[in-house]
Simulated scan of single mutants.
Amino acid sequence: MTMYKTVEFYKGLLLMFFITVLAYSLSLLPILSLIGPLAIAILIAVIYRNVFQYPESLRSGIQFSSKIILRIAIILYGIRLNIKMIVDEGFPLLFRASLVILFTLFMTFLIGRMLGVDNRLLLLLASGTGICGAAAIGAVSSILDSDEEDTAMAIGMISCLGTLFALVAPLIASITHMTPEIYGQWVGFSLHEIAQALLAGSSFGNESLTPAILSKLSRVLLLFPVTILIVMILSFTNKESKKKVSFPYFVLGFVALSIIGTIFLENGIMSLSFQSYVASIATFLLTVAMAAVGMSVDLKKFNRDALKPIFTLLLTSVALSLFVWIIVI
Rank of each mutant, 00 (worst) to 15 (best):
F109S: 05
G128E: 00
N50T: 08
S25H: 12
L229C: 07
A319K: 02
A166Y: 00
I158A: 08
R49V: 09
G138Q: 03
N303Q: 13
V117F: 09
A291K: 01
R304K: 11
V100N: 01
T2V: 07
S246T: 14
P30F: 03
L229R: 10
K308E: 06
L223N: 04
L115A: 03
I182H: 05
T237S: 15
L313N: 01
E240Y: 13
Y77T: 12
E181T: 13
F95H: 02
F64Y: 10
F254K: 06
L76H: 09
G184H: 02
Y24K: 14
Y48R: 11
F95P: 00
K300L: 13
G61Y: 10
T129M: 02
V318D: 00
V245N: 10
R80H: 15
I42A: 03
E149T: 15
E56V: 14
F224R: 09
I172P: 04
E240S: 14
L13F: 03
Q185V: 04
Y10N: 01
S218I: 06
L234P: 02
G156P: 08
N119W: 12
F9D: 01
L272E: 15
I228T: 03
L14E: 15
Y77Q: 13
K239T: 12
I327K: 03
T262E: 03
S215V: 06
R49Y: 13
I259T: 04
Y183W: 12
Q275F: 01
I326Y: 08
I72A: 11
F264D: 05
N206M: 14
M290P: 03
T179Y: 07
S25N: 11
G90A: 15
A291Y: 04
I269C: 03
G90Q: 12
A282E: 01
L38P: 10
G156I: 09
S280E: 05
T151S: 09
L38R: 11
Q275M: 12
L32T: 15
V278P: 02
L70P: 06
G156W: 11
V297S: 06
I47T: 11
L286V: 06
L14Q: 11
I143D: 05
S241R: 11
E240I: 13
F91K: 00
V220D: 05
Q63P: 10
E149W: 06
G112T: 05
R71H: 12
G188K: 02
A154T: 07
Y249W: 13
A169W: 01
K67M: 12
K67C: 14
I68A: 13
I259P: 04
